[in-house]
Write a protein that binds this DNA or RNA. Structure first.
Lengths: 363, 363
DNA sequence: TTGAAAGCGCTAACAA
DNA sequence: TTGTTAGCGCTTTCAA
């Protein structure tokens, strides 16, 4: 066996047992409790001792064992991000990534980890449920919930704080004061888009909606109707948030109302499909038909022919907001705590983030 | 205070203390050790007792406390996924999401959690380093490492198993037998693309490369040169994996070699920029200039005008592979274990996943 | 096959 | 201000 001498450096042998509070205490000639105090901020420890302990910590390269800490504090410093989207759009859109980035930034600023869980089938629901109930995380961020989704119930049952991404659409969800969500102003954004088309003097403004079992699609359609309350129903066609679906809807609209001179597509992806169909039909954009999208996904909107006028939503900010909202519930001793975070005090409330029109060439 | 009666159901009051091994043992009339055995597979426990314990577990809705378990087993059942990409491409490409999906699927199949960490600045490196050293995860998946990246060193120093995504490019990395990575066959894919263009009878085949400090860009350029060893250097222009960069590079190429009749762009995003510039220059695609991209990002390749012939790589599979490779190192008692996973036994080795040509209209 | 007991590394009363 | 001590909930020898 090679040298037994303890190498008091932070770059010690990986195989060596990790230093513990105990070993730091020994080296510094103090008790475990004192080391613990120093490690956790050092309140109420004499300066001289503090420094001695600090030095021992550094020399040994001590890092607290989180499992042990969690065991007693019941705090994990970890938050679950649950994405309930079976292999669909979330994974082809930059949406997902931007959301995660926002969440990640906010979370790590508060020194919390992000545990990512994807739900694709029934079996996954059970796995996630077990995990959430298992007390491994301090809270959860729930994404893209579908109809009456079991996730919020599960979380609530085990007393796990959570925040939902996107307005939940099932009956009763809206009046559920405990169901805190973050969503962008889909309805307002749609109003912006359609208002813009009308201000361009367009008289027959059609819309391609998303799948109407999703609140975002519903809200955007409502925004369209806010501006055009007496619109012809023939000017409304349902898509599915994909380019293909957008194209099909566009063809339908063209058949029903050949005189249309504007289209509001409820997503950039659908707008790109619509543009292709318009091109094939020999309509010029924006001269013959003005087109506005929604999302401002740069990789689409900026690269269609012509570039797309669209409604921008700040996805990353939504992610941050969700995380902030959740953290507030975790840190605070109650709902009434921590004002001045940009969030209203007085109980957690759902938040709607603003949208704005980005003008490019298509309208 | 309302009823004190313990409600022996799994849907108990969230505020109630969670059942422990102890309480299950008491209810079943056995010792903690026995319950532990049953919970962990129940080997060596008489059937009668097993059932009794099982029932108690269900009645109480018992779930083991992972922190306590980790404290003694030193296993976290969690893997860190570290993404070192400052706000760039990873977040606008569907890449990232697909990778995560592959990783997530593989990981949860083995009942491991995924802890996602994003590195954007120096401060983040420290945070992540601390975390990896802290023993909170059993292994790490390292992504998009830049030049001599400190992450692998950090992981190695603390003895944390890890697998890298994408071939590391710094000096010595290649000969480092411990540095296991997964990458797609960039070079082979490029050969496919350029070979296809040549088989079309094109004589002046240009290429738009990615940023040449990334191995993926380098490897794709090498593939181009494999097919065209005596190519004119004027036919090579450097882009940056963005549409704009692709457009600029295309303009450059057009200026240098107005006679070019084909372009291999090392990413679909760059290809889309190139297509726009070609259109503006009045060149028809594919009649005048044939174009091939790389990546097969559907939201781009399928929706350019004309749709893009490109090289497909199976990103999700890469993710799965990385996870599998890592898990093998964790479970196995040594590198020689667990064959029959589709991975060679006899020590962890880097893996290159195949690419293939997807023909659409642009070439 | 089962139970008793030690201990993983840490925090938080409580005493000194 | 510091130390002593009792757990947090679990696994795992070791004995019975």
């Amino acid at each position: 066996m090679p040298e037994q001498t303890p190498r008091p450096t932070a770059e010690a042998d990986p195989a060596a047992p990790r230093p513990t509070l105990e070993s730091v205490a020994e080296r510094a000639g103090v008790s475990r409790a004192t080391v613990s105090r120093v490690v956790n901020g050092g309140a109420g420890v004499r300066e001289a001792l503090r420094e001695k302990v600090q030095r021992a910590v550094e020399e040994l390269g001590y890092l607290p064992n989180l499992a042990a800490r969690t065991l007693v504090t019941r705090r994990n410093h970890a938050v679950a991000v649950v994405v309930a989207e079976p292999g669909s759009r979330l994974f082809s859109d930059p949406f997902f990534a931007q959301h995660l980035r926002g969440i990640g930034r906010e979370l790590s600023a508060a020194d919390n980890q992000m545990v990512l869980m994807m739900v694709e089938d029934q079996h996954d629901y059970e796995r996630v449920g077990r995990y959430l109930a298992g007390g491994h995380v301090d809270g959860a961020l729930l994404f893209s919930l579908h109809q009456p989704d079991p996730l919020p119930q599960m979380a609530r049952k085990v007393g796990l704080p959570f925040v939902v991404g996107g307005r939940p659409g099932w009956p009763g969800a809206e009046s559920d004061r405990q169901l805190v969500y973050v969503d962008s102003d889909n309805r307002g954004g749609a109003r912006l888009a359609v208002g813009h088309l009308r201000s361009l003097g367009r008289g027959a403004i059609a819309t391609i909606t998303g799948p109407l079992d999703q609140t975002s699609a519903l809200d955007r359609l409502d925004g369209y109707r806010d501006v055009l309350p007496d619109g012809d129903p023939a000017l409304v066609a349902e898509g599915d948030f994909t380019p293909d679906g957008g194209g099909r809807a566009m063809a339908e609209l063209l058949a029903r109302r050949p005189d249309l001179d504007a289209v509001f597509a409820a997503s950039d992806a659908m707008a790109s499909g619509a543009l292709r169909v318009l091109r094939e039909a020999g309509r010029r954009v924006p001269e013959d038909v003005a087109v506005v999208g929604f999302d401002d996904v740069e990789s689409i909107a900026d690269w269609t022919e012509p570039p797309l006028t669209t409604v921008r939503q700040d996805i990353e900010e939504m992610g941050r907001l969700m995380a902030r909202l959740l953290l507030r519930r975790l840190d605070g001793t109650g709902p009434a705590s921590v004002p001045a975070t940009g969030l209203r005090a007085g109980g957690p409330t759902s938040v709607i983030t603003p949208t704005r029109l980005v003008r490019r060439a298509s309208a």
